[in-house]
């Protein structure tokens, strides 16, 4: 019998609610995105206010679009973290309310695990190297010994933060990724910027400082965007290539908000060809934060026997994804050498 699961996402800009079925169909995925004022970053309390104002209509639409009666859902998932405290708390309150009203259990979900698991569902990835690129994360991971484990990551800021902080310096409002991508597409003038790959890890802070400096010196915005993207994406691509060579995985799954960037995808595709791996980007409408990642992961946890009481449904602003046990994945011999 098909079961239905609802997922509430509210870690940062996005408030979203989604209904999925136990057979892995995303029946609805409704979002409302908070936009910061120009030249500013996300303001946690204003974002939380936005989420409070939109929560009810987003949740109701997600049931309506899915044509699922709220009382038939088996469990309610919500993003417990990592993310911004005030935003997370809105999601937790909404989820607790639903749980009490419908008398159904709650399933706290790690937001980053959600990105990966939804990516696996939608692309059919079985045992991928995962590149997670978003506002909060820049990581390369693989599954081994019951967890998603980090093979490479940023040593300072994330790719999303790099783009946002540069964009804000230039007077844009975050998230700035798509505006920077658009501006970059109008230039082909490469200005040398610091390139820092350390093994499978990257470091973006030097690049950010230099890009801001170029802006202050009056270089053309489009040229800086182009050079910033070329440099940062090549760094990510190289770290990914190194991780592919090291792990010898035959699939590359790309998830997270920045996964939608066409230039980055293009670079990653080339790498996959060189290493004989299939390139599996998550479809753009699911790359950014959304309820579906939470609903689907809630289903996975729930069927593995995990749920909590409304009183235990708290939030965790900092929560490493490699501390989460993943009981639904198994590997007969995870350390088998494929090389």
């Amino acid at each position: 019998m098909t079961g239905y699961f609802v997922g509430i996402e509210s870690t940062a800009h996005t408030f979203s609610s989604s209904v999925v079925s136990s057979s892995g169909k995303v029946l609805s995925n409704i979002k409302s995105v908070y936009r910061a004022e120009e030249g500013h970053g996300i303001h946690p309390f204003k974002a939380a206010e936005h989420h409070r104002m939109n929560a009810v209509s987003v949740v109701l639409s997600s049931f309506k679009e899915a044509s699922v009666e709220p009382r038939v859902v088996e469990a309610i998932g919500y993003s417990m973290g990592p993310g911004l405290g005030p935003c997370l708390r809105v999601g937790a309150v909404v989820a607790r309310t639903l749980s009490l009203a419908l008398d159904r259990p709650l399933v706290p979900v790690n937001h980053a695990v959600g990105h990966i698991e939804l990516g696996c569902l939608l692309t059919g990835a079985k045992d991928p190297l995962v590149l997670l690129v978003s506002g909060g994360h820049t990581m390369l991971l693989q599954f081994s010994s019951s967890r998603w484990r980090v093979i490479g990551e940023t040593l300072d800021i994330t790719l999303g933060q790099l783009l946002d902080q540069f964009g804000r310096h230039a007077g844009l409002s975050s998230p700035c990724g798509s505006i920077i991508e658009e501006a970059a597409s109008r230039s082909s003038k490469y200005i040398q910027l610091p390139y820092s790959v350390k093994g499978n890890d990257v470091s973006f802070s030097g690049l950010l400082t230099e890009a801001k400096k170029l802006y202050d010196m009056g270089e053309r915005f489009e040229d800086i965007c182009f050079s910033l993207q070329e440099t940062a994406f090549a760094m990510i691509a190289e770290a990914t290539e190194r991780a592919l060579a090291l792990t010898e995985k035959k699939e590359l799954l790309v998830v997270g908000g920045v996964a939608a960037n066409r230039r980055l995808s293009e670079m990653l595709k080339t790498i996959c060809v060189r290493h004989g791996a299939s390139f599996l980007p998550v479809p753009p409408e699911y790359s950014g934060d959304c309820g579906a990642q939470i609903a689907w992961t809630a289903y996975l946890h729930y069927t593995s026997g995990f749920s909590v009481d409304a009183s235990e449904a708290t939030v965790r602003q900092s929560w490493r994804l490699d501390s989460v046990d993943i009981p639904w994945r198994s590997q007969a011999n995870p350390e088998r050498s494929r090389g």
Partner: peptide
């Protein structure tokens, strides 16, 4: 160093 990267938060 480990404390620096992993807990990167959205801002």
């Amino acid at each position: 160093i480990e404390r620096r990267g992993r807990y990167a938060k959205v801002e």
